[in-house]
């Protein structure tokens, strides 16, 4: 989460706003209690934009601020967004977050802003982009060198920073990539698959005692 904040210039909103459910987390770890106190067992569900192929957020935006890219990303056009919040209402995963106020980056936080990423203003929607700036940079690099993007060349901040390797990122269109192989495995499932939004993200069913 911190890596995501740092990479994507996400504004911190402070304790008071967090208590009002107004945090701007692009990825959040949802905690579900499998057993209650005194022997609590917590399940973690990292939830970020699922980049659905049939994304419910896209058709409802009146101004095409929520659009699909040719490589399957679900993009948010910040300049175009004027804040109806209809997309967020229609998102089954509730992963879209809204800039209720103007984001502030007090000194010295402003020094670490990522120059590749827009700082969002007040009144617009934002969400996980799969670190689109990294994807685009790798793609340009590859194009310049006249080749395809290589496996492992693009790593979003969350995947890069996860110490246990719980997250994998890759090209689902390449059947040999690790991500595609995992998504094709028997353990893979889509979160809220019954809504049939065809998410790009697959979760892997756990094995053994500690799993869900």
């Amino acid at each position: 989460m911190v890596a995501c904040y740092a990479e994507n210039n996400i504004a911190t909103v402070g304790e008071e706003q967090i208590q009002k459910d107004r945090g701007l987390h692009w990825i959040r770890i949802e905690r579900y209690w499998k057993t209650e106190w005194p022997k609590p067992r917590v399940l973690f569900l990292p939830l970020l934009c699922q980049h659905c192929d049939r994304a419910p957020c896209e058709p409802v935006c009146p101004v095409f601020a929520s659009v699909h890219s040719d490589d399957g990303l679900n993009l948010q056009v910040y300049n175009r967004c004027f804040g109806t919040r209809y997309c967020a209402n229609n998102c089954p995963y509730k992963v879209r977050v809204f800039n209720w106020f103007k984001g502030e980056f007090p000194e010295p936080m402003n020094a670490q802003l990522n120059p590749d990423v827009t700082v969002r203003g007040v009144g617009i929607m934002e969400k996980c982009t799969f670190c689109v700036q990294r994807i685009r940079r790798a793609r340009q690099q590859a194009r310049a060198e006249g080749r395809d993007v290589l496996e492992g060349e693009v790593v979003p901040a969350c995947v890069q920073t996860c110490p246990t390797g719980a997250l994998t990122f890759g090209d689902l269109n390449d059947p040999d990539s690790l991500a595609a192989r995992l998504a094709a495995s028997d353990r893979a499932y889509h979160l809220l698959g019954f809504i049939d939004t065809e998410p790009s993200i697959s979760y892997l069913k756990g094995l053994g005692a500690e799993s869900g």
Binding site: R22, G23, R85, R96, V97, G123
Partner: peptide
């Protein structure tokens, strides 16, 4: 900013 209203996530 629109945040002066009581709306939040998920009550947009």
């Amino acid at each position: 900013g629109i945040g002066v209203a009581g709306i939040n996530r998920p009550v947009f």
